[in-house]
């Protein structure tokens, strides 16, 4: 694990970036901006269009949200209990969850965009 100060610097940086990417995310669903209604913004075709037009922003949102959230979760879990085995478990858990969520999110996006095809 990196040093705690490095993790917290990352926490603060991702918090700033989250504000930017969450604004884009909310704007994509806000009525009257890109779509007339919220319901229209969550239709299959709208989501596909968002992925095509703002895929980079959504991947960035996924990355910063996962990093920010997992560093925060790690802090909470380390406060709940103490001990070397628990700390090792928590570190493993956040790395595993991070890899899983980033992998799943990126895979979903790439599949939707048709860059990779599940099952050939």
């Amino acid at each position: 694990m990196p040093r705690e100060s490095t993790l917290h610097l990352l926490l603060y940086a991702t918090a700033g970036l989250l504000a930017v990417f969450l604004t884009i995310h909310v704007a994509l669903h806000a009525p009257g901006l890109f779509y007339d209604t919220y319901k229209e913004s969550v239709q299959r075709e709208s989501v596909r269009k968002n992925y095509e037009n703002f895929g980079w922003a959504l991947v960035a949102l996924l990355i910063v949200a996962v990093i920010h959230g997992l560093i925060g979760l790690r802090g909470i879990l380390l406060e709940l209990r103490q001990g070397p085995r628990w700390e090792a478990f928590v570190n493993f858990l956040v790395v595993f969850l991070g890899a899983y969520m980033l992998g799943l999110g990126t895979y979903t996006l790439l599949t939707w965009l048709g860059i990779i095809h599940f099952g050939g």
Partner: peptide, 9 residues
């Protein structure tokens, strides 16, 4: 102080 149970908690 830059520890899991240091200043950041």
């Amino acid at each position: 102080v830059d520890d899991k149970h240091g200043v950041w908690r």
